[in-house]
Design a protein around this nucleic acid. Structure first.
Length: 446
RNA sequence: GCGAUCGUAGCUCAGAUGGUUAGAGCGCCGGUUUGUGGUACCGGAGGUCGGGGGUUCGAGACCCCUCGAUCGCCCCA
């Protein structure tokens, strides 16, 4: 190990993470599972820019929301244009739908994943650069779209093996229902204004719906009597929600009605939902205060607010880090083989052997060791956890000899055959036994 | 933006009440042993104690600032 230079090592940006090892495996497992399940539902893969004009987010999320007013990474580019690193997927996807004329594909089911950026205080399950998987259906006004989207989410969580997470479902009604309800809430909470928490007194101005899921005890005693959306739903809105509920039952998706579930962002209508760990479950403990693992809803108002035609849409997003925490650490796959050269003269043959094994018709997952003293390599080979080891040494009158080493395996037969097939495909070699070890003398390359 | 706890070798951590050249285990490098070689033993490299300022005869330990981590509030996935 060499001495560190005098220069100080740069620190990672606050709230960013370098993910490696079992955590990275869990992350990849979430993405791979998402990719697999999304195809079953025929959501089409799409990629979107990581930054957009600032107005894309400002106009769609609402200027007063926390995300826009204090959490965006915005900057001017060299042309003086205000750009913003995406704090969420939906706005950018809506923009893409409009600018590319994707109405022709409606109803369009899209799936994507990648990094998002929010200037927030990092804590458990929350980062400044974080990652989401995302699914959207644009151009479908039917409640069946909501149902299919939720069935997808539900199946994804099951296939990830995540337990004790339940779907909380609510409706915010159509634009009119929502507005009437909102006014009723303000009127109700105004009565108790002095008794509310400071946060909720402020929410009364900015976002009265959010008072409903306040964690403050002072607020909670007023929540039971607060008006619920159900009393204000228009007939259409009511019928829509009924259809969603019966559709979910038909699809076998379990859910709990959550009348206090609301959405912070302005563009939501009708269906709103979150998958949340059950209280006192280990999943809840794992996630800490960041309980929502997947959330979304219908945003029929969004595309219009971006200057497009009235376009119905539903979607959800889920935090990959949070899902990965629930999945738990995943071990990397166990290696089939580890190959190491015992002498400098056999280094070339060793890499040729490793390559032959990796590119065989039935390839073997192979680690190739090159560091450490010769005598340390056997110990290193053990430590890789590979089932078998192959040492490569010079051999008189031949290119060299490959010897099979017992490492961490019991059933040696299938592996030995595969190794032999891989070797004979690339080399002229003969089997033998040297010092009781099964060996192949490599005569020449084919 | 607000609050709490924390920051000592690559990793996990010891270093009572401030006091001589800052320690252990693991890992890494080398050697002896072994010789289908995973063991055991010996040795070595590696730290301006997150950074800056202050108090003190003297600070890793105390104070202030700053950066970062962790966990809450807010908000959200």
């Amino acid at each position: 190990m060499s001495k560190a230079s005098k220069q100080s090592v740069p620190q990672a940006i606050r709230g960013t993470q370098d993910i490696f090892g079992p955590d990275a495996e869990a992350f990849a497992f979430v993405v791979e599972t998402f990719e697999r399940v999304r195809k079953l539902y025929r959501f089409r893969r799409a990629e979107f820019p990581v930054f957009e004009r600032t107005e894309v987010f400002a106009r769609s999320l609402g200027e007063t929301t926390d995300v826009v007013s204090k959490e965006m990474y915005s900057f001017e580019d060299r042309g003086g244009e205000s750009l913003t690193l995406r704090p969420e997927f939906t706005a950018g996807i809506a923009r893409a739908y409009l600018t590319n004329g994707w109405r022709q594909h409606a109803p369009l089911k899209l799936a994507t994943h990648g990094p998002l950026f929010r200037y927030e205080r990092p804590q458990k399950g929350r980062y400044r650069q974080f990652h989401q998987i995302d699914a959207e259906i644009i151009g479908a006004a039917e409640p069946q779209a909501d149902v299919e989207l939720l069935a997808f989410a539900d199946q994804l969580l099951r296939e990830l093996g995540i337990q004790d997470v339940t779907l909380h479902l609510n409706t915010l009604g159509d634009a009119h229902s929502r507005e009437v309800w909102r006014r009723a809430l303000i009127e109700y909470f105004e009565l108790y204004r002095p008794h509310l928490s400071e946060d909720s007194q402020e929410r009364l101005q900015k976002n009265p719906l959010r008072i409903l899921d306040s964690k403050d005890r002072r607020d909670q005693k007023f929540l039971a009597e607060a008006p619920t959306i159900d009393a204000y739903l228009s007939e259409d809105a009511l019928r829509f929600f009924d259809d969603v509920e019966s559709g979910l039952k038909a699809a076998g998706v379990k859910y709990a009605r959550a009348t206090s579930l609301v959405r912070g962002l302005d563009y939501y209508r009708h269906t709103a939902f979150e998958f949340i760990p059950s209280e006192n479950s280990s999943a809840a403990a794992t996630l800490g205060a960041q309980s929502t693992v997947l959330g979304g809803g219908r945003y029929d108002g969004l595309l219009y607010s971006l200057g497009g035609p009235h376009t119905p849409a539903v979607g959800w997003a889920a935090g990959i880090e949070r899902l990965a925490m629930l999945v738990g650490e995943r071990a990397e796959e166990v290696l089939d083989l580890v190959v190491f050269s015992e002498h400098r003269e056999s280094d070339g043959l060793a890499i040729a052997v490793a390559t032959a094994l990796r590119s065989a018709p039935k390839p073997l997952m192979t680690e190739f060791l090159y560091s450490g003293s010769r005598k340390k390599r056997y110990a290193k080979a053990q430590a890789t956890g590979a089932y078998r080891g192959l040492s490569v040494e010079p051999f008189q009158g031949a290119l060299g000899v490959v010897r099979l080493r017992d490492l961490n395996v019991e059933d040696e037969r299938p592996m030995r055959k595969r190794i032999e097939n891989a070797l004979t495909a690339k080399f002229d070699c003969s089997e033998t036994t040297i010092a009781k070890a099964h060996s192949w003398i490599i005569n020449k390359k084919k």
